[in-house]
């Protein structure tokens, strides 16, 4: 058990391991997306107030959920890499950042598209919207800082510290933004006021959340593989791999 766990820290082993995993995750992504989209677009009922607009939810909610999840994963693996100086943990952390940023952007855009017919405007300075915008800034800061260093090891460690500082700050930002909004204007449109969810809708939503999770793992493994090749390009096994193919 433990040797298996330790092996994860070796880039070569991780590369081969993710090669074995990837086909399964790719297949699972396709199946789950097909199922989730069919359930969401064809077999789930209309909302009695929002009509078809509610179907944006099946993209919006999983994206929002994952954007926070990915940040936590990024910060924790960055922290692990920082404390125990594990190369693989940094690689995972760095690979998480662009994916998380895209999920955050997707959540913001789908939210805006959903907001126009529902709230009558693309953007409201609502607590959730604002804290997601800040989350996007945190992602961008992480990537910008990592890009700014010439030396990759220094970049890894500096970015890990920033991610951890951000992790401490996210709850504070979230609650401060929530409080700020409730101070200025009453809860006019701030909360998703929906009737308790229909069972079919819930089924579709949960399928989509799992589909997004699996999709995230697939893309993450792919990015990690590329990052490993980039970083280990001078090592023997990578040269062999490249010349053989």
């Amino acid at each position: 058990m433990w040797t298996w766990f330790y092996q994860l820290a070796s880039p070569k082993w991780f590369y081969q391991f993710s090669n074995k995993l990837l086909p399964w995750f790719r297949a699972a992504t396709f199946i789950l997306f097909a199922a989730g989209l069919a359930l969401g677009l064809l077999f789930s009922p209309l909302d009695y107030q929002q009509g078809n607009t509610v179907r944006i939810l099946y993209i919006h909610v999983p994206a929002a959920f994952l954007s926070m999840f990915v940040y936590v994963l990024m910060a924790l693996s960055g922290g692990i890499g920082f404390i125990w100086r594990i190369k693989m943990a940094h690689i995972v952390s760095v690979s998480c950042a662009p994916i998380g940023a895209i999920f955050t952007l997707l959540a913001l855009i789908t939210g805006a598209i959903w907001g126009k017919p529902t709230w009558g405007t693309y953007w409201v300075w609502d607590a959730r919207l604002t804290s997601f915008l800040i989350l996007l800034f945190l992602y961008l800061g992480f990537m910008a800082l990592h890009n700014a260093f010439d030396d990759r090891k220094t970049a890894d460690r500096a970015a890990a510290i920033l991610a951890l500082v951000g992790l401490v700050n996210i709850p504070i930002i979230h609650f401060s933004v929530e409080w700020w909004n409730s101070l200025h204007q009453g809860a006019t449109i701030s909360k998703f006021e929906k009737p308790s969810m229909d069972a079919d809708m819930l089924k579709a939503l949960l399928t989509m959340i799992v589909a997004f999770q699996v999709y995230f793992v697939t893309v993450l493994l792919q990015r990690v593989k590329a990052e490993i090749l980039l970083r280990e390009k001078l090592s023997g096994w990578v040269k062999k791999l490249v010349t053989n193919q």
Partner: peptide
């Protein structure tokens, strides 16, 4: 600026 301003937000709000 990019790194620090998001972290300043809670202080600004309160």
């Amino acid at each position: 600026t990019l790194l620090v301003l998001p972290l300043f937000i809670p202080v600004l709000i309160f």
